[in-house]
Design a protein around this nucleic acid. Structure first.
Lengths: 242, 242
DNA sequence: TGAAGTTGTCTATTATCATAGACAACTTCG
DNA sequence: CGAAGTTGTCTATGATAATAGACAACTTCA
């Protein structure tokens, strides 16, 4: 540090700038997708040289927190949520483990009837009565995924109301006496978000999504719920344990 | 940092070493007066050059945390407790504000009679019955001062037992209904520790002490207690607000 | 007294930190 | 298109950070 006027602190200036910007991202002053102030402006606010700001931004970019676009500006990258896919998958636990605040919101809960595919997944007959739950899951107020969940209306009456109250699939199942459950095979595909999901996920049209289809079973192997989830690809990355 | 193998963190190595040693002092691994490991040994444990260790030690020495003695070693300086002298002076608050753990220990509580000076300070008649309390005050297990406190035996019967239970003059006074009190004039002198106090303060003979005489009054100005305190000069510095 | 161990000081080298200025390459918007 | 604003890259300079080696000055202890 060539700060002739100040005693050396042992902490590089660019580090202080980077920490300051990161704090701004963490506490929401800069939201995901926001454009940061220009390098010159940041340099002025921190009273440092533009190159020092660039060093700070480079460090943040390497960690994936920001992304610079030449001629346009530097933008806050939505930090991708590391989402491990295991037999025991609980959204709230995964989000909480990342130090973020999990949150669920019910969009609607309606009755439905089983298609042949749904019936096969849930071990029911085609046309059997189902409860369909549409929900959004968020981490730190950022939408991560919308999911459509089907349950047997016979086994889980009023499931919609219970989910609305608990906002958690785990708690919903617990309400019906399911103490533990496991995820069966998980199918992952990718696609382009449709208008409805784009609005729900606060995602621009044309952006890619990760589509996950999975069925949860109780410990005896009996199917409980089957889900069709659409994840904002730019906000999540799945981790599959080897 | 010329660590070719590691990505630069923006925090100087010497700072990490200094912080590590300071933590060792704070949590008691290195007590006041202890000899630190040799510069070479520290360099090996932190895997840095000896000069880097010297940079760290120099920073700590400048802050008064350690003191190097050529040919002998580097020693932990008893950190001087910043002790502001205000009308509202509470040992536990002062020590706590420094991030240290205040502690009091009763040595003895006996009856006494007022000398002419004590009587004048406390607004009593010469020969009036007093309670005399001898106590040690510590910060993080380091003795800071021994103090002799006199109270009227008529106004504060069994004061010794109450202090033994509460270990706090503030709580003692509160026990007798004194909700708040203020410090009157404070006289500060210096002297050489005597054998008794040296043992109680864990101080070498011949070391200087700060002697404080003060009387606390209630909010109407009535004298409550008068004290004669001896502070280990090497462990405390008084701050008088301008 | 002398050896061993300690801190203090010196020179030297390399990498990083920070500043400064200039210009290129690119985007945005009127 | 063209001006304004933005990020990217280059050169240059001086101060710190970290390493390395050598030796002096001093303390401790057998």
């Amino acid at each position: 540090m060539s700060m002739q006027d100040t005693a050396s602190s042992g902490v590089a200036l660019w580090r202080l700038v980077a920490d300051g910007i990161e704090r701004g991202i963490a506490d929401g002053r800069f939201a995901a997708g926001d454009k940061l102030p220009g390098e010159m402006e940041i340099a002025e606010t921190y009273r440092v040289n533009r190159h020092t700001v660039r060093r700070a931004l480079a460090a943040l970019a390497e960690r994936g927190l920001v992304r610079a676009e030449r001629g346009s500006g530097t933008y806050v990258e939505a930090q991708k949520l590391a989402y491990p896919l295991r037999s025991r998958t609980r959204f709230s636990e995964i989000v909480g483990a990342e130090g973020r605040e999990p949150h669920g919101r019910l969009i609607e809960a309606t009755g439905d009837v089983a298609t042949r595919e749904l019936a096969r997944e849930l071990g029911l007959k085609t046309g059997a009565p189902l409860v369909r739950i549409e929900a959004i899951r968020l981490a730190d107020r950022t939408p991560i995924c919308v999911s459509t969940t089907w349950l047997s209306a016979d086994l889980f009456p009023d499931a919609g109301a219970v989910f609305a109250a608990t906002r958690s699939m785990t708690k919903l199942l617990a309400h019906y006496g399911v103490r533990d459950y496991r995820r069966g095979a998980t199918r992952i595909t990718a696609g382009i978000v449709d208008a409805t999901d784009a609005a729900r996920l606060d995602l621009a049209l044309g952006r890619p999504i990760l589509v996950v289809d999975a069925t949860d079973h109780d410990l005896t192997g009996k199917p409980l719920v089957t889900k069709h989830s659409r994840f904002a690809a730019e906000r999540v990355e799945f981790l599959v344990e080897s």
